[in-house]
Write a protein that binds this DNA or RNA. Structure first.
Length: 427
RNA sequence: GGAGGAGUGGGUGAGUGGUUGAAACCGGCGGUCUUGAAAACCGUUAGGCCCGUGAGGGUCUCGGGGGUUCGAAUCCCUCCUCCUCCGCCA
């Protein structure tokens, strides 16, 4: 959420931003609501000031034993007037809040202006695509042949877009998650949390998932609960409503969770395999920083995610998203895309965003400057480090062998206990 | 699920329906003192919104919402959260 005063005073900036992002907002409606609201507040507050003065006076007169019935009756009317004002103001407040909740964040000046993903800018690449003598097979073929994935039984249990990992496939998923968490907590300076996988409406609103993206999530019927779409929700809400000590910043946290997405509107996209699922595991990295640190921390956040891919030896690239492709709450986003041999292209495996104060304002997360002075909003950053299921996919495809086995990268062997996952019926 | 108790400023914790936005203490910041530091002492130390170029003024907030009242941290209703005991349970 942007600051109300900022929006009011920079309507031209907001208008330009909506053009760049390719969204539309009714700014005229905003202006008329805002103007009327302020007019009513001024009037109501004048009445309240009057009431406060008279009430104090009544107190004094009553003590002195004077008769106060006339003045008291008059004040009763005033109070009723105030109540009417307050009701109208509350209505306008609600409408203004609803409007502000639909205004996306302002993109940073370094973000390329563009319509969609075709205007994204590749920042760097790492490694090379692996060479194959035979045409590489897609992950679902390799995995089912190795007996580590069973999509039919997954469908029997829950339906389509769910995975059932089997044997070493399940262990590989678990190994990846552990590997990610170990590197982040022991080497990258993150503190690990294991949060609830179910979150409240309030938490989702603070992050910006609600009210806009209700259709993308699973809502638990007749409750205020939702299945979490990303641990970004839980990690943002760790400090909701708190004023943090500036000495604690930057605060780096991470969490492994399952993530749940309805994928409504994704019908027909990525239907083969397990790239797009209703449930997947992800290790999320998250930072709370001082405003002047956030862009440096953003760069290191991306490096922390890339580091994992490099240790796994997976070819990837980093892409800077254009204004038209960026998420609602983000001021700047890098996507990391990993090489997928079967598609002869890249697949998104991490998204690292600097939300600046956008989420912090909504979630009420401040810091008190060391020098004293006013509490200000922290900047928040989030990034996948990494999507576990998609890393699993990338590993299976990039490390598939001619004999149908899957080689395990060196760094994962301590977690796996084996050097390769054999094809079914072999050793 | 049942019974009881509690939610006050960065923290601990007072608070009678009427200068209590809130004592006191701790912590933070600034200062005095000191070669420096500690101690001591003095000052200062919530946020939102509205008006105002500014200085400043006003208003709201004592878990959330509603009510009673001329006036609510204080009385009433309701919801939420936490704690204790019982029940159930991985």
């Amino acid at each position: 959420m942007l600051d109300l005063g900022y929006v009011r005073d920079h309507l031209d900036v907001i208008r330009k931003m909506t053009e760049n992002r390719g969204v539309s907002l009714d700014l005229d409606a905003f202006q008329s609501i805002d103007t009327e609201r302020r007019r009513l507040i001024t009037e109501a507050e004048q009445l309240k000031a009057h009431r406060n003065r008279v009430s104090e006076d009544i107190g004094r007169r009553k003590k002195a034993g004077e008769d106060i019935s006339a003045i008291s009756a008059e004040m009763k009317q005033t109070s009723q007037q105030i109540k009417q004002f307050d009701e109208r103001i509350a209505e306008l407040d609600e409408r203004l809040r609803e409007f502000l909740l639909t205004v996306p964040n302002l993109p940073h000046s370094s973000v390329p202006i563009g319509r969609d993903s075709s205007d994204n800018v590749e920042v760097r690449r790492w490694g090379q695509p692996p060479k194959f003598d035979l045409t590489p097979r897609p992950h679902w073929e390799v995995a089912e042949a190795a007996g580590i994935l069973d999509l039919e039984r997954a469908a029997r249990i829950a339906g389509s877009r769910f995975a059932l990992y089997c044997g070493l496939g399940a262990r590989l998923e678990r190994a990846l998650a552990n590997f990610f968490l170990d590197v982040h907590t022991r080497e990258h300076g993150y503190t690990e949390f294991l949060p609830p996988f179910i979150v409240s409406t309030e938490s989702l609103t603070a992050v910006g998932q609600l009210p806009k993206f209700a259709a993308d999530m699973f809502h638990l019927e007749a409750t205020d609960w939702w299945m979490t779409p990303t641990a970004e929700v839980e990690l943002t809400n760790l400090y909701r409503g708190e004023t943090l000590d500036a000495d604690l910043l930057p605060l780096r946290v991470c969490a492994w969770t399952a993530c749940f997405r309805s994928e409504a509107g994704a019908a027909g996209r990525d239907t083969r395999g397990i790239v797009r699922q209703h449930q997947f595991q992800k290790v999320e990295m998250y930072k709370f920083t001082l405003p002047d640190q956030s862009y440096a921390e953003h760069e290191s956040l991306v490096r922390d995610a890339e580091d994992l891919l490099q240790r796994l030896g997976l070819h990837h690239r980093v892409v800077l998203l254009s204004t038209g492709d960026m998420g609602f709450a983000s001021a700047k986003t890098y996507d990391i895309e990993v090489w997928l041999p079967s598609t002869n292209g890249f697949m998104e495996i991490s998204s690292c965003s600097n939300c600046e104060s956008f989420q912090a304002r909504r979630a009420g997360i401040r810091f008190r400057p060391k020098t004293g002075g006013r509490a200000d909003y922290v900047h928040t950053l989030n990034g996948s480090g990494l999507a576990v299921g998609r890393t699993w996919v990338a590993l299976v495809e990039n490390y598939q062998q001619p004999d149908g086995s899957i080689l395990i990268p060196e760094v994962l062997r301590p977690y796996m206990g084996v050097e390769r996952i054999p094809a079914l019926g072999t050793k």
